[in-house]
Design a protein around this nucleic acid. Structure first.
Length: 229
DNA sequence: GCCCAGGAGCCCG
DNA sequence: CGGGCTCATGGG
């Protein structure tokens, strides 16, 4: 994993697409969906919770389906930790139906809500990153990518999120083999691309945007138009 | 009809 | 540790 290539690619993406301002909020924010260059984001626990719910709901699922589910959550007044913690999965499932795997995800959301009641956002934010990560991973339904998304976007911990897109793109560009275990790939990136909250958020958002342009449908382009030389 | 989406848990060799 | 299976809706 070359530091200069990783850096160059970041700037190419930024030049092509501009700041992405992830994570998109629409339920708990009356302001803009995206938060370009806004270091004070997220601003409150309700926004942090929305990010956590989205991180679970988007597991192997297109964002559009997640939006529909989150709208139902809001409509039912369920953007609320206490309610989510107590609501039986059979009752929550139909609400998030559009996000798919709704029986599983209803359980996962309940697990996470009960965890967050025991570990308030402020506590998780102050905790050392690796300790907060370990705690999140103890929740059934929170795997590595979901944990890192929550850490990065909801808890302001500078961790690099590896997802199917970033792995696919880095592999195509020859940055990595593509078969590395999650932790190993994340560690390689973070060793070469210094931890920085805003840059990590942007890089992930940019990779997803780039993937939607060139890495959605097979066959992928022979040569990535933004490949740094 | 088919393929895929911003994965995770479980089981099995 | 790695691979295969299950979970499910909605859009292209």
């Amino acid at each position: 994993m070359s530091r200069s290539l990783l850096e160059a690619f970041y700037h190419r993406l930024m030049g092509a697409y501009g700041p992405q301002g992830w994570w998109p909020l629409f339920l708990s924010s009356s302001g803009p969906l995206y938060h370009k260059g806004d270091a004070s984001f997220p601003q409150n626990d309700q926004q942090r919770l929305e990010i956590c719910l989205g991180a679970i709901l988007t597991q192997n699922t297109s964002w559009n389906n997640v939006v529909m589910a989150l709208e139902q959550v809001g409509r039912q007044g369920l953007l609320d930790l206490n309610k989510l913690a107590e609501l039986p999965p059979e009752a929550l499932g139909p609400v998030i139906r559009s996000a798919g795997y709704f029986n599983q995800k209803a359980r996962y959301l309940g697990n996470l809500a009960r965890f967050l009641l025991q570990h308030p956002f402020e506590q998780l934010r102050q905790m050392p990153t690796d300790q907060a990560r370990k705690a999140l991973l103890s929740v059934s339904g929170v795997g590595q990518e979901t944990a890192d998304s929550i850490l990065l976007y909801a808890l302001d911990h500078p961790v690099f999120v590896i997802d199917a897109y970033s792995r696919r793109i880095f592999k195509a560009l020859g940055f990595c083999a593509g078969t590395e275990p999650y932790d190993q790939l994340a560690a390689q990136v973070m060793a070469q691309f210094p931890p920085d909250l805003t840059r990590y958020r942007e890089y992930h958002g940019l990779l997803v945007e780039h993937a939607k342009h060139y890495y959605q449908k097979k066959p992928y382009p022979e040569l990535d138009p933004l490949a740094p030389s």
